[in-house]
Structures are given as structure tokens and as C-alpha cells.
Design a protein around this nucleic acid. Sequence first.
DNA 1: CTGAAAGCGCTTACAG
DNA 2: CTGAAAGCGCTTACAG
Lengths: 348, 348
Amino acid sequence: MPQANTPRVRIQDVAALSGLSICTVSRALRQLPNVSEHARGRARDAAAKLGYKASSAASRLAGGSTGSVAIIAPTATAWFFARAVEAAEEVFADGGYDTVLISLRNRSGVQPKLFGDLAGLAQRVDGVLLLNIALGETEMAALAESGLAVASVGMHGVPWDNVGIDNAEAARAAATHLLELGHRDLAILAGSETGAPTVVTASERRRGFELALADHGLTVDPDRVIDAGSSIEGGRLAMVKLIESGRMPSAVFAGCDETAFGALMALRESGLSAPENVSIIGIDDHQMSWFLGLTTMAQPVADQGAFAATLLIDRLHRSGLPNPPFAGPPSNHLLETKLVERNSTRGR
Amino acid sequence: MPQANTPRVRIQDVAALSGLSICTVSRALRQLPNVSEHARGRARDAAAKLGYKASSAASRLAGGSTGSVAIIAPTATAWFFARAVEAAEEVFADGGYDTVLISLRNRSGVQPKLFGDLAGLAQRVDGVLLLNIALGETEMAALAESGLAVASVGMHGVPWDNVGIDNAEAARAAATHLLELGHRDLAILAGSETGAPTVVTASERRRGFELALADHGLTVDPDRVIDAGSSIEGGRLAMVKLIESGRMPSAVFAGCDETAFGALMALRESGLSAPENVSIIGIDDHQMSWFLGLTTMAQPVADQGAFAATLLIDRLHRSGLPNPPFAGPPSNHLLETKLVERNSTRGR
DNA sequence: CTGAAAGCGCTTACAG
DNA sequence: CTGAAAGCGCTTACAG
């Protein structure tokens, strides 16, 4: 196998240049305690002059950090995930971490396999950023045992740092918008796609939807709850189902904008449109939503990914310090959403 | 730092169980030559029974493979890249490789930094999959020296396996469609965004555009070549520029569908539309293109990512064999594109 | 075809 | 606060 021909700068070189032992250099560079400021300075200078960067392989093998983190997402192509992933990756890269992308690809089987060998994963990365992953109890336990640092986006009641939006509230606000417009026969397009790992936000959004209806003395008609996943195609099929049922609701709450796009497509295919035949509201404020005149609850996506990544890195840094595991209780950060009214909804 | 508590299965355990030495096991498991079929079988059985998987850290440190590959993309959020990345990630995962995602994020500075330390990268991954990255000569040289296996999507005249479409031909076909509709004043929305790393396909598409015009005895008016990058916003701004120039072309070739979407938005903002005021054609066949009635040249995206990933893995496998570097000359695979006529173009 | 030995570059106890 | 030693789990020459 061909080799890079730049001779690697080893910790030994830094030790030689700084006049310290390699173990002191190692501790100094990793900000561990019990190193004099003087030694720390010398080590840092020598490392900088030599352009030294610890071998992640050696460090990892010796029991130190791997210098990489994994992002686990249900899919990497959906609007939300692509943006969250990229924002997180940027934070990780700036923090000196490689980011390993693991897409569950809406394929059953890959999640169990992944969580079945968390020890293997833990050997390759220091921490994981979970993006809207629905976890079973066994999986939660496995994660706790793995020793991996964890942070997440869009998860709920979870024993690690999380950032998201208040999904129930956002859904409630969306449905309330519809109700205040005078609509009473509401349908919700949400939930999981067949064979797809459940996306946690879906159930919360559905709960918010129910809450809004309850606020208005209404209950949810099971026939008006359509599984649509969170894809364009899922939204399209769900709306087709509604149209073919011959009983069109007055308004539709789509679990996310892409689902709403699909619903809009289905309407057009049938010669119908929003808000003429039905009002439609989504959640996201996708880049195309303005164009399509879609009313939606806007959420900050890149911010969520970046913030969660920052929290994970913070934990990782603190974990190097004494008194693990990772000082401080888990925090939960809810970012703001806001209603963006356009032309897909109107009073009746 | 907390530790996983499943005791790791080491190669030594496999050696003990199989009655072989660890070095024979090592060779057997990596399919190296000079191992008897008998030993190979015993090693394989023992490894399977124990659920042995080599430590990537140890393997890497000892000079073996890292078990991971990097995907380098200009951005991970654009429609094309998100899909290509996910498709490639699936192939890598199935092949047992971790995939490290590196997004250049359209930020100048990150590419030079990355290529400035390819030796560092080579220490962490076995190979890289380049997605439409414009490379300077120094970067090409650095890549060759790094010892990394390389494959790419959408690149041109490159000394490694590549898969893509014939960009010049696709662009030429798109422009020809416009010309055959009778348009003579054509504009092209393409090229790189300010500060963004150049996307290689852009220049090829521009060349195809020129070719088509030349076929019809026309030359390109520099004023009709607008830098639009390949984003929605870039397309919008480019079209705004065209509108504000007061000299609207008869038809517009957008370098990709997202650029076309942006152009469509700009038209709508000005109370204009396609094909009434101008014909518009894109390249991609984005999921939303049908909805927006956009005429476009369809290209298979996931196929490109998956195919290129397969080629990279093949090289990686072959690189373990004797007689490196990697047997076989680089191959270039061009996948089919095809015109999808919708309502954004019409004769004049 | 197979094995004993050395070494990859770190980090972690353990002494000082 | 600092250092010498052992060891992490592999792979690579080198002998047999």
C-alpha cells in the first residue's frame, strides 16, 4: 500500500524539542491537570512549531479519544436532516473532530444492527449526535453503557443534552391557526412511513394537534389521521387517500413542509388546489415554501444542529477532566418557532 | 472516561480458538495470499463464532486499513449532493466502512486547509470519494502523494475512477431544446457562487451551452452568462439581475433545477412567469420539478453516488493485494440523461 | 505456508 | 509536578 511521504511528527519530537518527557507533553496538550504552566507553555509552543497533531489511531488505541463523532440521522436527504447534518458537521470540523455520518436510511434493520454493536461504535468515535431517533429502552440502556457522549436534536425527555423546538406547541399553534380560521374538520398528515424508523417528533406533533382540537372542544377522528412519514411522496400518497375517500377535510395539518408539498401535488393532480378546496399548513419553512405559498410554522434548523453539536463538544471536553462522567446535568434547549402566514390557508 | 464493558474480542482470541498464530489469522482474515485454504477456513470460522472484528485503531496504527472513507462534497444540503452522499454512505456502510463526511460548505479556506494536510487525512481514512470538486494541480499532486484511494462523481479527465453524466452533452441538449423551440436570445445561469469552491460541472455545462449555440451559428453574449452558483438563492438573484437589466432573454438555461427554481421565484416576484415571459430549462429532475412544471434534463443521482462508492471499495479491496498501486487503469462511467418536457418551455 | 518478534504512536497507572 | 515503563491490538518484515 502506498504511503504518504511526509514524515509524521510524533509526540516524541515534541518532547525532544520542549525538553519534556512525552508523558508530560501528552498531559499538557490535552489540558489535563497536574502540569505546571511552564511545562504547558513549552509543550504548546513546541507542538505549534512542529505542527504536531496526535495520531488519532494511536490515541484511540491507547485509550484516549478518537477525535471523531458520529451523526446518526433517519436519512440524510430530507430537508431538515441535510441542513442539521451540515451545520453540525461544520461545528465538529471547527472543533477538530471528524464527523462520521450514519444514515438509517429509513431502512429497518440498520438501527438494530447499529445499536447491537455500540461497543464497536464507541471504539471508533467519542460521541454521537442523534437526530430525531426513536429509541427503545434497550437502546437507551446500550447507549448509557457504551461510554459514548451523547447529544441530540428533536428528542424528548432524554438523559443528555438536547436541542429542538417544542413540537407539541408548534403543532398546536399550526392546528390552532386552522381552527381560528373557522375550520372544524381537520386532518393530520404525519407519523412514520412503512418500514421506516419512527421519527420522534411525529408523535409529539400529533399530540399538539390533538391538544389544539381539545382546546376547541373537538376530538380527533381516527380516519383523519393519515400516515405520511415526512417525505414529499408520503404526503402525496396521504392526500391521494384523502381525496379518494370522497370526504375531503376542510383543512390539513402536514407534519412538515415536504409532506405539505406532496399534498399540494396530489391536489393539483386531481385538479384541486389550496386553499380553494382545502387549507394546508406545514411546519419548517422550507426554502420552497414561500414559492408555493405554503403557510407554515417556521423553525430554525441549522441552529438546532449547530447548537447540539456545540453541546456535544462541550461534554467531550469536560469528559477529559477528572470526575467523570461529564459534569453537569443534561440540558434541554427549545428554540422558537413562528407562524408564517401565506396563501395555502384561509377562512371558511 | 467511562468504558464499554463488553470485553473486546481480540485477534489473539481468534488465534487461540483456531489454533493458529495471530499473524496467520490476520492474513487469513484480510484475504491475503500465502494462507492455506484450511487455515483460512479455521480463521474465518473462529472469527465468526467469536464475532471478531479487527480494531480499526490498532489496524490503522500498525499500518493496515482504517476501515473508513471520506466523502468530500462542496455542500451536503444541495439536492444533488444530499442524495449522492446518502447513496454512497449506504454502499460504504454495507461494505463495512465508516463514512466521514467532509463538507466544504461553500466556504473558501476549508478546501486549501484540507488538501494542505492530506497526510493527516490519509491517516484517518483509506480513501476519498470526491463529489464535483474542482482541483488545482497542487491538489491533484497532493492527492497522488497521499496514498489515498480516490474515486469521484462528476469530475473530468481525472486519474481515478469517475462516474457522472456527460455534462457538456446534457447542457447542449438542454440548450438545443430551447433553440429548436425557436429561441435565439438565450441566457445561461450557472458558474460558481462568490467565495464558493468551483463546481467542476458548471464549466462543462457552460461549454455544452456554447456548443449548442455554435451548432446554430450563434455565439454566447457575455452579458447573457450570469453567475448563479447552483443554489435556489443564486438562481433567484441571477434572474433578478436579468429582469432589472430591462433586456429579458427569450429563454434561460439554468445550470441545475434549484437554480431554475430560484429563477422561477424571481419571475413570480416581478409578476412574470415561465413560459409566458421566458422559457426556462434546468438539469436534474429534482423532486419538485414536476410540481413546478419545469422542463429539465433528468439525471440519475443516487446511482452516481452508489456506483462511485462501489468503484472506490473495489479499489480498496484490490489494494490489499500484491502489486499495488491498485491494479487496473482508471475508468470513467457516463450515465444517461434525458429530456423531460414540461411547461416551463415553449416555442416562440 | 506459518510463526515469533518488533513496532506503529499514543495514554495510563505507578513511582518518584 | 514529572518521568520510565508497560500496554492498547493490530500488521509487517523476517525467519523458518
